[in-house]
Amino acid sequence: MEGAVVARCGRKRTRNRKARKCKSFALRHCRPVRDMAAVGQRLVACMLNISEARGRDVVAQVAHAAIACRGGQWREGTTVLNVFSDEEYNRSVITIVARIDVIALALALTSRVDGTSAFFFGSADVPRNRGLAQRRREMGWFKKVVDMSTIHPDVGPSPQRRYGLTGVGASPYVMNCNVTIDTQDLAVGRKVAAALRESGEAGLPGIQVLALPHEGAVEIACNVKSIPCSSSWAGTVPWPAFSISGRAYHHVPARLITARVAQLAGTHGVAVRGTALVGFTPRECRVLAEWALTLGIGEFWTKQHQLYM
């Protein structure tokens, strides 16, 4: 599968969850179109996170602006596949897919919006290709008090607190998989998260984890990175896989994440409530994006239930 690339632009990682809806009908009936092969190779998905969920009109306006030209018309080659809002966290995740050059995107952003500045990561960080976490550390992203004068963006003026600093880049698809465990004890959740993340004692490759209180329980919120295929990790059951420019990638499946969380939480006498994905798997994202772009649907998220549910 070509074109499973994710771009991330924003100030914070997602803390949202989504009760995952069945997409089996869509994946059976919305097949990739053959003459879309060239399009698929250039598709970029952006999971845009915004600190708003309770004002639904505001969220809808942001989603529309993501695919609109200055005059308000639909920008050809773009679509919003999904909008998920979590009112408890007051955050929304907007899944945007487009044919775009991420470096050109950063240049356009800083030239059109006064005061904005950006740094590059992933494939946009030429030639070093540094990851988002590394770039954030270099920028002082995780410090409680940041000295803005020490930050040197790749594009735009010296950053100002009013406008912040935007990370722009592209990497193999990152999926969000959240497992809820039946406890309010955040300490237990943190122990599970520490063991689950890639560097942990029971860690899974490509997994970044936080434990967060949510709706009277604890959510094990995972970023699931796609990594180069390696037989040393996948075991006897193949993991979901795709390719970008001829290079093969795969990712830990949600079932394995759920099983590992259940095992780790079980040692503390805690059960799993359920698992949810925010947005799509790489395959779902690509198939639905190609279908939406073939049909010329910009606001796919407003029509998806009419089309395939």
Score class of each variant (00 low, 15 high):
190 R>L: 01
161 R>P: 10
163 Y>M: 13
199 S>L: 10
201 E>S: 13
186 L>E: 09
195 A>C: 12
191 K>P: 01
192 V>Y: 02
201 E>L: 11
197 R>A: 07
172 P>E: 12
180 T>E: 08
170 A>R: 11
201 E>V: 09
176 N>T: 15
173 Y>P: 01
174 V>M: 12
166 T>S: 10
189 G>P: 02
175 M>T: 02
162 R>P: 05
178 N>Q: 02
185 D>Q: 06
184 Q>W: 09
179 V>G: 05
163 Y>W: 12
169 G>H: 05
198 E>K: 08
163 Y>A: 12
164 G>K: 09
161 R>I: 07
168 V>G: 08
170 A>T: 15
163 Y>T: 15
165 L>A: 09
162 R>K: 15
191 K>S: 12
173 Y>A: 06
173 Y>M: 09
180 T>H: 04
191 K>R: 14
166 T>Q: 07
190 R>K: 14
184 Q>H: 12
168 V>N: 14
183 T>G: 14
199 S>W: 04
162 R>C: 12
187 A>E: 10
193 A>G: 08
198 E>V: 01
165 L>H: 05
200 G>Y: 00
164 G>W: 07
189 G>T: 01
181 I>W: 02
187 A>H: 04
162 R>H: 14
198 E>H: 08
174 V>A: 13
187 A>S: 11
166 T>A: 07
184 Q>A: 13
194 A>R: 07
183 T>C: 14
179 V>P: 04
184 Q>T: 15
168 V>W: 12
196 L>H: 05
164 G>L: 06
175 M>E: 04
182 D>A: 13
181 I>P: 01
193 A>I: 06
192 V>G: 03
193 A>E: 04
190 R>S: 06
191 K>F: 01
185 D>R: 06
178 N>G: 00
182 D>W: 00
161 R>W: 09
171 S>P: 00
166 T>R: 03
185 D>Y: 00
176 N>V: 14
179 V>I: 15
197 R>E: 13
197 R>C: 10
170 A>F: 03
178 N>A: 00
187 A>I: 03
174 V>E: 09
193 A>C: 10
186 L>R: 06
168 V>M: 14
189 G>I: 00
168 V>A: 12
196 L>I: 09
172 P>N: 13
162 R>Y: 10
192 V>I: 09
171 S>I: 11
197 R>F: 00
169 G>T: 08
182 D>K: 08
194 A>D: 11
174 V>C: 12
199 S>Q: 13
178 N>T: 02
162 R>T: 15
178 N>H: 03
199 S>A: 14
170 A>V: 14
170 A>K: 11
162 R>I: 13
185 D>S: 06
187 A>V: 03
189 G>V: 00
187 A>N: 08
176 N>K: 11
182 D>L: 07
195 A>P: 03
194 A>I: 02
185 D>N: 10
194 A>V: 05
181 I>L: 04
194 A>S: 11
200 G>E: 00
179 V>Y: 02
175 M>K: 03
186 L>F: 00
